[in-house]
Simulated scan of single mutants.
Amino acid sequence: MNQSNREFLEGLLTTPSPSGFEADVQRVWVDYVSEFADEVRTDEYGNAVAVIEGGDPAVAFAGHADEIGLMVNGVDEDGFVRLSRVGGADRTVTKGQHVEIHTDDGAIPGVVGQTAIHLRDTEDDEVEDVAEQHVDIGVESEAEARELVDVGDPITFDTPVRELQGTRMAARGMDNRVGIWVAAEAARRAAEADVEATVYAVSTVQEELGKQGAKMVGFDLPVDAAVAVDVTHAVDSPDLADEKDQHGEVELGGGPVIARGSSNHPEVVRTARRAAANEDLPVQLQASGRSTGTDADAFYTSQGGIPSLNVGLPNRYMHTPVEVIDTDDLDAAADLLAAFAAESAGRDGFAVDI
């Protein structure tokens, strides 16, 4: 990953984007794709689409811009901020964390309170629901707090992007800023290679709330196939070492993951695997017997059925403030999708042969 690619990725990762509040990160994404796209457009909810004009077929590469988080649900009489969840926030990782409350006037720093171990009954050390936790912003009264925050202000963990050893990185919200990075970068590489297919890069909103942005975009996106790029669980950490029978065999650094089954269209799968083989790109396979849980599940039932595929990016510790990815997997995924566009050029759709 070159310096420009890394700066783009870090710009995405350091821009807060809880579901329903994605505008800031969408601006970062739009600025990047505007440098090479023939057209860039956004809709009323902030979904963003970039187009690289070419011939048939038209293919879309899509990630979702939103991240999980918290939200101000109220303020008590002592000025402590009460919480609700945005998406699938994990109550077991929230306590004792630095956070930022994103208000119309800027970010307010705070911490999620955690009772000292000396004062807890560790015999019965259960973690409270998010709604029973609180943020301390340092004020002494409800009136002071309400001068600073409003009910409905989104909250994110205040965690930095960390360079780990080799090509590994840790940050919150890898899910799924890495996906929109790949969608944009794959489109750029396809444009540089002057592929003959038409390529759409898409950054959707509100995936964590039920794939809502993809439902909006899929309604009239004029494509013959859609590839949803999202994170998937790497199972190579100690806590999952004995659970590969249940969760599959995905490893960090092993390359992007091509899902098979359910919403993953067999001809799109074959085209992706052929592109990987032709370019000697590392890929992993994943079984998807029911649903992918990604935007692919929204795209494939749109417009009577858009042939779709979920490409996963291996991720450790999903939905925590310390998600870990390997940037080699991101580069390989961008190369894979650009090769997919090239492999698709000139074909007449992706319909199964009956």
Rank of each mutant, 00 (worst) to 15 (best):
D224A: 11
P314I: 00
G255R: 01
V283E: 07
V178G: 06
N310M: 13
A241M: 15
H319V: 13
A226F: 09
A234H: 02
H233D: 14
T232F: 06
R189Y: 06
Q286N: 08
S237Q: 07
F299M: 09
Q286K: 09
A186D: 10
Q206R: 05
A298R: 05
G293I: 11
K211H: 15
T232L: 03
N278G: 11
V195C: 08
T198I: 15
D245H: 11
G218K: 00
P282R: 04
T294N: 13
V178Q: 05
D242F: 05
L285F: 10
R260W: 10
S288V: 04
V227T: 03
V202G: 04
T204N: 13
Q286D: 14
R316S: 03
V268Q: 02
V223K: 04
G305Y: 07
D236K: 05
E267S: 10
A228Q: 01
N278L: 11
A187Y: 02
E243Q: 12
G253H: 13
D236C: 01
N278F: 10
G254N: 08
G248C: 11
Q303D: 15
E208V: 12
S288P: 09
I180Y: 00
S308E: 04
S263F: 15
M216G: 09
Y200S: 07
D220A: 13
R260L: 13
Y200G: 12
P256V: 12
V231F: 08
D297N: 11
N315G: 10
H233Y: 07
R189N: 03
V268I: 02
D224S: 06
Q206F: 07
E207L: 14
P222A: 06
E267Q: 13
A184V: 01
T294M: 06
G179Q: 02
V269K: 00
D295G: 13
T292Q: 11
E251V: 11
D280F: 05
G305C: 11
T232D: 07
A234I: 12
D194G: 07
H233R: 05
